[in-house]
Amino acid sequence: MVTNVTSFGRSGLSDWVVQRVSAVILALYTLFLVFWFAQHPQVQYEQWSELFKCTSMRIFSLLALFSLIAHAWVGVWTITTDYLTPLSLGKYATAVRFLVQCACTIALFVYLVWGIDILWGN
């Protein structure tokens, strides 16, 4: 058992499941938007805001946003633990990796709050 406290769910299995489920949700959301844009070739502000007035669209968007955040966290965490290691960076690896992970987590948090504000703010 290899322990790690910075991964998303602390367990490899939960990270793996989160990564798959969030990928499916993001794929569905993308397909929906592509389909919607195909239906509305000359999209105007009115149609766009009409779409997002609908509560189910807001919930779907929020779900997609959560998925994106979780997916990005698992992905970034994996990349940092692959490439920012003592093998490639020597003794500063842990500090560099931790800082990069913190920076990414803060950025993801900002995007999350910002996204919620866009969807539910005025």
Partner: peptide, 11 residues
């Protein structure tokens, strides 16, 4: 299985 459930060993 319990030994393998971390983010590194298998995943």
């Amino acid at each position: 299985l319990a030994e393998l459930d971390d983010p590194f060993s298998v995943f």
